[in-house]
Amino acid sequence: MELKVAGLSKSYKRRKNKEVKAVDGISLEIANGELVSVNGPSGCGKTTLLLMAGGLMSPDSGKVLLGGMDLYALPPEERDRERALRVGFVFQQFYLIPYLTVTENILIPSVGSGTWSLSLRERAMELITRLNLDHRADHKPGELSTGERQRAALARALINKPSVLFADEPTGNLDDDNAEIVLDHIAGYADEGAAVLLVTHDRRVGNRAHRVYRMKEGRFSDN
């Protein structure tokens, strides 16, 4: 299993010290080449699950094994490095860096991981072509359409060929056509052998996912 999540729990303290369980003992396994979708209403804990599984948020309890490696047993700096090399993220808000060009945005993970190379630049060009962004390669995010921005964000997530791709509502801001394109590419990346965890309430994911989990109040209600 490329990604294994076991008994993950996370609570937040809200007003008056009231504790809210965002994720409550969730376990999940995703093999290479598998696309798993988790859907559910807003506030059910989907994003918290994704952030914990992606190594960005320490769980209160439970484990995350990435390629067999216990992510939260690693020192923070080492975990950052593993994340840079093995994990890709796509978010609803794109989070492109506004003053960098599309190409630079796509290559930015190589700065964090220190993996810049000519072949990486060639891969960036390949992704730009594949995602139909050739005419936008030297444009800044402010000059792009919403669909183009998400495609650029997807290219950025894929630049290091991560073994696991996490996508949090990647189609939330897109029209139908662009949503289809993005979902096709995400599914296509799973077909290339990666493990993909897709958190969404977009029903269009439907038949593209190998498994679909429904989440409610921090737990999987069924699948």
Partner: peptide, 13 residues
């Protein structure tokens, strides 16, 4: 948000 995404994609402190 830029800091958030940079940290998410592996930038260290």
């Amino acid at each position: 948000h830029e800091i958030g995404i940079l940290r998410a994609i592996g930038f260290r402190r």
